[in-house]
Amino acid sequence: MSKASTADGHDELQRGAGGALGAEEAVRAWRRAADSAVLLDGFHALKHALRFGADVPVALAVDKAAARALADDLAPDVAGELAARLVEVPGDVLRALVPRLHPTGVAALAGRPARADNLAAIGRTGRTTPVIVLDEPRNLGNAGAVIRLAAGYGAAGVATTGSLDPWHPIVVRGGAGLHFATAVERLTVAELPDGPLYALDPEGADIRGLTLPDDALLAFGSERSGLSDALRARADHLVSLPMRPQVSSYNLATSVGMTLFHWSAHSTHAP
């Protein structure tokens, strides 16, 4: 995936780049760029963003030595890059810059991937892994968990419809920075890419009798209201997950995980 970011913020981030920054310079760079950049909240979000090629010019830590020890232990593949970028700042300073300080005492800013690159990844002809479609999702944490699942299964991308911003800081926190391991964009139903659309619905055919194609769009409605009328009209197939009678629904991320596992069990392209 390209490292290109949105126009706003990228230049600001670049002006503040470099592991040799002093604490005051790093904080100034953060404040210039924070409104338009992606917040990486915690060591694991930063680790994944670096691992999957994100632009991360500003990275702060309350205890740089502790963060480096975590990297040596859990992410030696990016330990050198992380050490070069981290700038140590006092805890009260970092707390003032983020909504809630992560227990690891680490936070960073990244440039958001270009929308055109994400759309190309989601819509490319001959996809060999599915696109996950979240139809008007409501819960930010659940959306993040789905993006984490999609990255783990190597999905081509995650598209959301409706008003929820899939790059909201709470979504990025829930996804542990794995937005950069797949393509994540908000689209209208009319903008969804080509491909057979399988929508999860209690009245659909039992998924256990189906093979989901590699280029499928796998669509999931909100837990409260299910599929929107527009998405249902666009669907080629309605599919149901096995569920005990009188149980109302599964958590959204659970439904996505079950569906991706079923796809992976029949695909030669699954990780």
Rank of each mutant, 00 (worst) to 15 (best):
E81C: 05
D117Y: 11
V78G: 00
A145E: 04
E81Q: 13
A107G: 13
P113K: 08
V106G: 01
L82F: 04
I132C: 04
G144R: 01
A145P: 02
Y153H: 08
G91Q: 14
P90E: 10
V89K: 00
R148I: 03
A150P: 02
R124D: 04
R148L: 06
A84M: 12
L149F: 03
A114Q: 12
G126H: 10
A121H: 07
A108D: 02
E81H: 05
V146W: 03
L109H: 03
A155N: 11
R112E: 13
R95C: 08
I132P: 00
G80D: 14
G144M: 10
N142A: 15
A120K: 09
L119Q: 07
L140C: 10
R148T: 04
R112D: 07
E88C: 08
G154Q: 03
G105R: 00
N142W: 11
L149K: 03
V98S: 08
L74D: 08
A75T: 08
V131W: 00
A121T: 13
A84K: 15
R95I: 05
R115M: 15
G80K: 05
G111Q: 02
A83M: 07
D135L: 04
I132Q: 02
Y153P: 03
G154S: 06
A116R: 15
G105I: 11
P137A: 09
L101F: 05
G123V: 11
A75L: 08
G123R: 13
R112M: 14
R138K: 10
V146G: 01
L134P: 02
E88G: 12
A155K: 07
P103Y: 05
L86H: 01
A108F: 03
D77H: 14
G152E: 04
A79D: 05
G144E: 10
A155F: 06
P137G: 09
N142V: 13
A96D: 15
D135Y: 02
T128M: 09
A116W: 13
D117R: 13
P90W: 11
A75W: 05
R124E: 09
